[in-house]
Design a protein around this nucleic acid. Structure first.
Length: 424
RNA sequence: GGAGAGAUGGCAGAGUGGCCGAAUGCGGCAGCUUGCUAAGCUGUUGAGUCGUUUAGACGGCUCCGAGGGUUCAAAUCCCUCUCUCUCCGCCA
């Protein structure tokens, strides 16, 4: 959400943001028009209310005869007020629903573009492997080694479900634990979060309205299963005013993630690339309302993840996500795409976003500035640390060997009881 | 799931229809005073939002868990919900 006053004064910036992000530009003017109307009506309501209040105070002291006359007049204005209040309420709701759709302007160096094909490559790290044998896909590899069972996953839960057995399950756990330790070492506080959350959390982080189709809903209890622990992690302090010296708040969580993947029929149907349930270690930072600080933190968060990928000896690239592929609330997003031999391409494994105060306004999450003063909305950022099974694709395929076994990268071996290879 | 109690400002806690945005205490802030490890005294101190203003200020409206209702008038009366606590049941 954006600051209404700021939108009024910078309507062109918001319109431009909508154009660049390929979102509906019309909402900007719908918002402005409704907002103006609402403010007019609100003023009338408040004035009428003020009159009514003062005359009501006098009523208590009047003589019985005068009182009856005054009472009649009060009742009449009261009826008028009720009408106006109703109108004001309706308008307020309309204004809010338009406000929820306004786009956060992207950073200046976000490339203009329509979709992910126009994302700009900003770094390439590691060497894409060249195999002098017939390299297998992770699903063939997994089946041969008996460690991935998609068929039975589908039997249990429908398409896009899977089972990991033995060393695949162990490798997944090893990677997740390594990722957690990596972040804890860098000063992040580990949090265990709920993954079934209220609607406010989904709205507060910007997933709703708009993303309902993507989420599994527990409608009987009016809860949603999160698609990422960014949702609970960012929402923890909603409605609160934090002390300045608590910031920045750097946190990491491991959680299961659930996505319906509606509208992706026929896309990435093979293997573990696009699944309904996965594990993810996510980093979330809340800090002061300072654009420069935010940018620096964003870079640092990106590096936490690229360092991790390097440690696991995986080749990847970083892209600066273009305007059309950016979400409504994001100021900028960098994706890490990891090399996946079976796709003969880099595939998205990480997504690092910064929001400025877009999420925190919706969440009403503020802090008291240094030395006191009015509460300000925090800035929020998040990034994937590791997501599995997607990372398993990269681990299995990139580290496969001529004899059909898979080399376990050194950093993960301590988490696998010293094991060096899968499939001997 | 059953029974009961409760939700008021940073905290504690009063307030059962108009004099209540709210006593009092603690805490915070400002000043004074004194000096033997700190205290005493005085004053001040809720938030949000809109508008006027050069500043500082001034004014309107809203807020006593949330939402509805009664009333000219609600922290106070009524209804619904949420949350917390105690007891019982169930349970990884």
């Amino acid at each position: 959400m954006l600051d209404s006053r700021w939108v009024r004064e910078n309507a062109d910036v918001v319109r431009d943001a909508a154009v660049r992000k390929r979102l509906d530009v019309g909402v900007v003017d719908s918002f402005l028009e409704r907002d103006q109307l609402h403010r007019d009506v609100l003023l009338r309501v408040e004035n009428l209310r003020a009159d009514l209040k003062t005359s009501s105070k006098k009523l208590g002291k009047l003589e019985p005869e005068e009182r009856e006359i005054a009472l009649a007049a009060q009742r009449a204005s009261k009826a008028e007020l009720k009408e106006l209040e109703k109108e004001e309420q309706g308008l307020r709701a309309e204004v809010r629903s338009f406000a929820m759709l306004l786009p956060q302007p992207p950073a200046d160096d976000v490339p203009d573009g329509k979709d992910d094909l126009e994302n700009a490559e900003v770094a390439i790290v590691g060497k894409v492997p060249e195999f002098d044998f017939e390299a297998l896909s992770h699903y063939d590899l997994g089946e041969k080694l008996g460690i991935i069972d998609i068929k039975r996953g589908v039997k249990l839960s429908g398409s896009r479900n899977y089972l990991l057995l033995g060393d695949a399950a162990r490798l997944e756990r090893a990677a997740l634990q390594f990722a957690l330790d990596h972040m804890i070492q860098r000063g992040f506080e580990m949090v265990s979060v709920p993954t079934l959350v209220k609607r406010e959390c989904m709205e507060g982080t910007g997933y709703f309205p708009g993303g309902e189709e993507q989420a599994y809903l527990a409608e009987r209890d009016d809860l949603a299963l999160v698609g990422t622990s960014e949702v609970p992690l960012t929402s923890i302090h909603s409605g609160e005013t934090l002390d300045f010296d608590k910031l920045p708040l750097r946190r990491v969580a491991l959680s299961p993630c659930y996505r319906r993947e509606a509208g992706t029929y026929g896309k990435d149907t093979k293997g573990l690339y696009r699944v309904h349930q996965f594990w993810k270690v996510e980093q979330v930072v809340l800090g002061p309302a300072d654009d420069a600080w935010s940018l620096e933190e964003h870079k640092a968060m990106l590096k936490h993840s690229t360092d991790l990928m390097e440690a696991m000896e995986l080749p990847f690239r970083v892209v600066n996500v273009c305007t059309g592929d950016l979400g409504q609330g994001q100021v900028q997003k960098w994706d890490i795409e990891t090399w996946m031999p079976s796709r003969n391409a880099y595939g998205e494994t990480h997504s690092a976003s910064r929001f400025h105060d877009f999420q925190t306004r919706r969440l009403n999450l503020r802090y008291r500035p240094e030395g006191g003063g009015k509460p300000q909305f925090c800035h929020s950022l998040n990034n994937t640390v590791i997501a599995s099974p997607r990372v398993l694709i990269a681990l299995l395929e990139n580290h496969q060997q001529a004899d059909g076994t898979v080399r376990i990268p050194e950093v993960l071996r301590p988490y696998m009881g010293g094991q060096e290879v899968i499939g001997d």
